[in-house]
């Protein structure tokens, strides 16, 4: 039985906007085990990034965490003070963000930015931290790390910036690495390299990986388990093989159809009818019911809970009865 590293219970994160509360994450329960690669997948705006960024509490100022707990190594992250959080961020939980172009400080040298967490968390003297930064940059595949560590971010390409981000975020060897669509902003060849790098570092440092993506190719390549999100809800969790070979939730089925259909050259690309709902006033009952082919009257009125259909394969759908 693998040990649980992170356990999220009944987490609700709403965004306060002029038009009302956006229910980005609504009563989500999730467990992540030590050493695994967990993937959160879903369409743009389904709340997957909000869920991920709520863990180190890096949400924008208009986000409100209304309920829930996030237990990380037996500490509830939602109850920590700012200074207690500072100690955990970057040291135990690190984040690689989506857009490397804007995620590095433009007026500070790369080496300084990469070495900074060591100074902040281990009181390493700057001289040593800069030497470690050079080693770390060389580990992530930056050529001439000695010279390049003195460069500013504008002199780096997108791929190099993301590598530097990864170097920076893994410099303290955290136990949990959250990668929020780390390759979305990069071109395809660089994507593969960056993903390989993340996988290598995961093995080398024994990290637990929480990867956010909307790309099934990345899921298949990187992950042990998958969580599918739809309109702020976690609708299905299971092993990557189960999810691909026997998806349970109608939404997951639809998503996988979209990808598989591309391989059958002549057939028309399959699609899920309709569009994702507004998260200010999501549909009652099961949030997927207006688009669901199997919806019954129960689906429109009653919200489905998570049911374990087979071992470790959980789904939130009324069509499955335990």
């Amino acid at each position: 039985m693998p040990r649980t590293l992170l356990s999220i219970k009944d987490l609700r994160v709403y965004y306060e906007t002029i038009r009302g509360y956006v229910k980005a994450v609504d009563s989500v329960d999730l467990e992540i085990y030590e050493g695994e690669s967990f993937c959160l997948i879903g369409e743009t705006g389904c709340g997957k990034s909000t869920l991920a960024l709520a863990i180190p509490r890096l949400l924008p100022p208009n986000a409100r965490i209304l309920s829930g707990s996030i237990m990380f190594k037996n500490i509830d992250l939602l109850k920590l003070s700012d200074s207690e959080l500072e100690e955990i961020r970057g040291r135990d939980i690190a984040v690689v963000f989506q857009n490397p172009m804007s995620s590095l400080n433009p007026v500070l040298r790369i080496g300084l930015q990469v070495g900074e967490p060591l100074v902040a968390h281990f009181k390493t003297p700057w001289r040593e931290a800069l030497i470690s930064a050079i080693k770390q940059l060389s580990r992530v595949g930056i050529p001439d790390p000695h010279l390049r560590s003195k460069d500013y971010p504008h002199a780096f390409s997108g791929g190099m910036k993301q590598r530097s981000m990864i170097a920076m975020m893994t410099s303290c060897k955290p136990s949990l690495l959250i990668a929020d669509e780390p390759t979305t902003a990069l071109d395809v060849t660089i994507q593969a390299q960056v993903l390989r790098l993340i996988r290598e570092l995961k093995e080398e440092y024994g990290l637990t990986l929480l990867l956010i993506t909307h790309n099934f190719g990345i899921v298949a390549e990187m992950c042990d388990r998958v969580g599918v999100m739809y309109a702020g809800k976690l609708v299905e969790v299971g092993n990557v093989i189960d999810i691909f070979e026997s998806p349970l939730h109608p939404y997951t089925k639809g998503l996988i159809e979209c990808v598989i259909a591309r391989r059958k050259s002549k057939s028309r690309l399959s699609q899920i009818p309709g569009a994702p709902p507004s998260l200010i006033n999501p549909p009652g009952g099961c949030r997927f019911h207006p688009r669901c082919l199997y919806a019954t009257s129960r689906c429109t009125s009653e919200e489905p809970g998570l049911i374990e259909v087979s071992r470790k394969h959980i789904v939130a759908c009324h069509n499955y009865v335990r």
């Binding site: 180190p56 890096l58 700012d82 200074s83 959080l85 500072e86 100690e87 955990i88 961020r89 970057g90 040291r91 690190a94 984040v95 963000f97 857009n99 804007s102 995620s103 590095l104 400080n105 433009p106 900074e116 967490p117 902040a120 968390h121 981000m165 920076m168 975020m169």
Partner: peptide, 14 residues
């Protein structure tokens, strides 16, 4: 800016 979020994510002091 994104890089300020990065700075917080690194666990730097306020």
């Amino acid at each position: 800016e994104d890089y300020i979020r990065t700075a917080w994510a690194k666990g730097l002091s306020k």
